[in-house]
Amino acid sequence: MKLKISTYSHISPSHIQVDGKDVLATIPRSSFDEDTLAIYKSLGIDYPKFYKMDAPSKLGFLASELVLKSLDLKQYYKSEDIGVVLYGASGSLDTDQKFQATIGQPTDFFPSPAIFVYTLPNIVLGEICIRNKFKGENYSFAMEAPDSVEICSFIQNIFEQEQVMACLCTWTEFQNRDQYRSIMLVIEKEECLQKRDMNEKFSNFEEETLKQIFYKDL
């Protein structure tokens, strides 16, 4: 079965890109909080939940909005056939540290439920599903560095076994406010893209392409 990357985005301290091309170039890069707010505003969406998200969720959420803005997957697939597969190394560690700070001292012990709910690596995946009403397969993995062979093989598998018809696959890694990147790929079957009469040249979803995307600019 031939899989294609129908579109992908990349957000890092130095990049805001869709399909390898810079977008939102007018946003002056300053800090994570200002940058993400500027990206959110530029997308022209009204989604107050964004403000409540922790940093890793904001990062992954915006990367997903960048690709889904011009591609309404639900127009082509049932919501339960759209999967999301997440990979990352640090997961929710930044938020874990914030939560730990709320319970660090017996005299200042006020654990925050709003922070605690984000102390799981898979929460960003939940945010993306809630926003888009994606109800399909959901996988959340931790690995120290993106492993193109593993990722390719697994995604290929879940398509072949008809667990998903389309899927978002992301490497979302938030170490701290200076070191972060989210790469969000939309993966579809070649035959589905052909049916939509899409004549654009899409990249094949294969190890080499993944390596190029994941390790470019590193």
């Binding site: 107050p48 006020f110 654990p111 925050s112 439920p113 709003a114 709910v117």
Partner: peptide, 17 residues
């Protein structure tokens, strides 16, 4: 304001702290 269940728990923390 459209707050939800986590917000209500957070308000409890606010009152306490």
């Amino acid at each position: 304001l459209g707050l939800d269940s986590i917000d209500s728990l957070e308000l409890i923390v606010l009152l306490q702290r």
